[in-house]
């Protein structure tokens, strides 16, 4: 990068006796690593989300954490659910997956035991969808590519919840199918309901859609130049790496070539 892009939220490093913000406006690589960690693990930029409103003719700007809470709840639940599914894809489930499973279901409500993440992800998704439907400003800027992943993931969550708690499926046969894929020896067991295949289809659609959609923020967050570059513009010289030697010609050379012609035409020259 020729220049760092310091969209900061804290005091820049300048003089040693001026206290500066090490995480929000880092000047070192380690500071950047911390900023990236907080960005990825806790959505720190979103935490600063504000909302402007006009009340009694005056403009007020206040902090608005709902989007941050909804996004954080959704992403972590999605991660836990994804990791939990590993029990269908490996022969012997590792203990850490079992641990996550038992913590997730530790309320021991009903049988099969209720996973908290199932409730939270459904609530978070409905909030994120409701925001796009009922908030006029957000509705105005929402595109099909915003709604589609929401509906897709809602469909996946809904079929998953239906299979686990209500319609019930033959889970042993499902694992025979998934392990068949893992061992590169695919089989299709009998007796699997359509609900499972709907779930599988929607997940496949999600995986196929992922690399071409806004969901690529999963990889893109690591490449945000405003987050992953240290703000050291004044400490180091940053040369544009795609600079190339520009072809140029001095006036002197030009005049040397055309001096005679210029004289004949009456154009003044610097050297005779």
């Amino acid at each position: 990068m020729p220049f760092r892009i310091p969209t900061t939220a804290g005091q820049q490093f300048s003089l040693p006796w001026i206290k500066y913000s090490k995480i929000d406006n880092p000047s070192t690589g380690w500071g950047v690593a911390l900023r990236m960690f907080f960005e990825i693990a806790f959505f720190r930029s979103l935490f600063r989300n504000t909302k402007a409103d006009i009340l009694n003719g005056r403009l007020y700007v206040g902090s608005n954490k709902w989007l941050w809470i909804g996004a954080l709840a959704f992403h972590y639940c999605f991660l836990i659910i994804l990791v939990r599914h590993l029990r269908f894809f490996v022969g012997e489930t590792p203990w850490c997956i079992s641990l996550i499973d038992s913590i997730d279901s530790f309320w021991q409500i009903g049988l099969p035991m209720l996973y908290m993440t199932d409730i939270i992800i459904a609530a978070a998704l409905l909030y994120l969808l409701g925001r796009r439907i009922f908030n006029p400003q957000v509705k105005y800027i929402s595109l099909p590519s915003d709604y589609f992943p929401l509906f897709l993931i809602l469909g996946i969550v809904a079929t998953g919840i239906l299979m686990r708690y209500f319609a019930k499926v033959d889970i042993t046969s499902i694992k025979e199918l998934t392990l068949g894929l893992v061992y590169l020896n695919p089989i299709v067991p009998k007796g699997l309901g359509s609900l499972f295949y709907i779930h599988l289809f929607l997940v496949s659609v999600l995986f196929a859609y992922f690399p071409f959609s806004k969901l690529m923020h999963m990889g893109g967050v690591f490449l945000s130049p405003t987050r992953n570059l240290a703000n050291n513009n004044r400490m180091k010289r940053h040369v544009n790496p795609w600079d190339y030697p520009v072809k140029h010609r001095h006036y002197e050379e030009y005049e040397n070539e055309f001096r005679e012609k210029m004289k004949k035409a009456g154009i003044p020259v610097e050297k005779e």
Partner: peptide, 20 residues
């Protein structure tokens, strides 16, 4: 990323498939 995504496959290498 590739290592994490292929975990289900790599974890199964060398382990026999036991059908219940």
């Amino acid at each position: 990323f590739v290592i994490i995504v292929t975990l289900p496959f790599t974890m199964s290498i060398g382990k026999p498939y036991v059908q219940p």
